[in-house]
Design a protein around this nucleic acid. Structure first.
Lengths: 242, 242
DNA sequence: ATTTATTGTGTAATTTACACACATTATAAA
DNA sequence: TTTATAATGTGTGTAAATTACACAATAAAT
């Protein structure tokens, strides 16, 4: 375990308050892990076993270790819970009210993660884990309802400015799936023809030359998202129907 | 001083890592305090006296006390440094890399504040404080350049979505002053006539029936921003020239 | 072959953004 | 008093983006 220097009074000038052990605070990360399945936006929750909140749903979180970067802590939690690496992760907000945790002072940094559920099957052991409908959550532990709402709003805004949504879809997807995703996240109906027009105009979708399978009607073409093309263009991601 | 319970192993189930004293981390707040003067965007900085960064500019920060809300800590720092209360303050991002502070592990939460410089004269004692040009900063201590850049970008985006800018202006201002402010923040020239049209269309500006004084040309009308009208309308704040 | 459900394509109307022109009004100088 | 100057204040026309809506094409089920 690497040795981390603790701040001393002498070396922390510029910070007015004297640095003492009493000034250290427990710091945690809470991950709001979004998924998309059966045309619904989902969020991965775990049942709380904290006495005060027994049986209620809570986000996946853990304490940050002194020798560990904040982002690394978030990735660690994701890997522990989902077994996945190289997935989308972004910091959203830090919640630091004194009364937010019944056991004492814990400041928590909320991260959002978007996961392709197809690539992730929950471990059998984790029967306390559950993909919960994002639009029908109640009775969350701690201030997790506040944190979740904040992250949900963040997601709604973010998907209209950047191509995050693709992280929730399989590599190959139909335009209908893409639209279902946006409708689920934004919680509103969109016009199919204008949606289509908008996304093709962006020129980031690549026709993979395959069709949908096992649909009881005309199958749609499958596309994949071309991240490289997006990076190169640096084109502003347009809004999707306001 | 209020007594804050420290987390114990038993009561913190749900957090996987055991909670011990070693898991507590020094937490600080750094404020990026923006002002506007002489048609320039300014930021309030202090000379660092940390040995490694001696003479370099740093943001105004302090440690968060265990019994103090995160937001409260930011307001406390603002009050200590500027003497002002009831001013704009918003959390932007948390920086938590292990190597960011030479004295040890300090995670810092960055807050942005917008101040009307007219209402604030620096105390004579604080001769290490300086309103620095936001567009010509170099040699900042710690990772404060990264934090500042992040907050500056945040501001540029935010003023195009919400009416924050008014916090940087006096209560009564001319449209030219308002435009100068936006040009300074966005660092680009805007068309005077379209700017004017856009802001009047929003219908949040109130003519106070006075004119500019001491200008060597036709004086402009003075306006004030009507926050109540803005709250009521809940109208989307339109973009200001992209 | 017909029905059904959904994909794929287009077009016109409306709104918004952008580029630009000109009259008005105060100060300052001749 | 007149004129020059440097802004403010008010348009107008064109291009671009958004929105609303219509219809043909295709695969599956009957």
């Amino acid at each position: 375990m690497p040795q981390i220097k603790q701040p001393s009074i002498k070396t922390l000038k510029g910070l007015q308050t004297e640095v003492q052990s009493i000034n250290r605070i427990a710091l945690s990360v809470d991950c709001v892990i979004f998924g998309f399945d059966e045309n619904k936006l989902k969020v991965l929750l775990i049942r709380s076993d904290v006495k005060k909140f027994i049986g209620m749903w809570s986000l996946l979180g853990d304490l940050v270790k002194p020798e560990e970067d904040l982002d690394s802590a978030a990735y660690r939690i994701l890997k522990q819970r989902t077994g996945l690496k190289d997935i989308f992760l972004e910091q959203v907000h830090t919640f630091g009210e004194t009364g937010r945790h019944p056991a004492g002072r814990v400041v928590t940094v909320a991260y959002c993660s978007l996961i392709n559920i197809q690539n992730h099957r929950l471990r059998i052991l984790d029967n306390e884990l559950h993909w919960h409908d994002a639009n029908s959550i109640c009775d969350m532990a701690f201030d997790h309802q506040v944190i979740f709402n904040s992250c949900y709003k963040w997601l709604q805004k973010r998907v209209q400015e950047h191509p995050l949504g693709f992280n929730l879809l399989p590599n190959k997807f139909s335009l209908r799936e893409l639209q279902n995703l946006y409708e689920a996240i934004l919680n509103k109906k969109l016009d199919r023809r204008n949606f289509r027009k908008k996304f093709f105009a962006m020129d980031f979708l690549v026709d993979v030359g395959e069709d949908e399978q096992n649909v009881p009607h005309r199958p749609g073409k499958l596309y994949k998202f071309n991240f490289e093309k997006y990076e190169k263009k640096k084109k502003k991601w347009p809004g999707i129907d306001f």
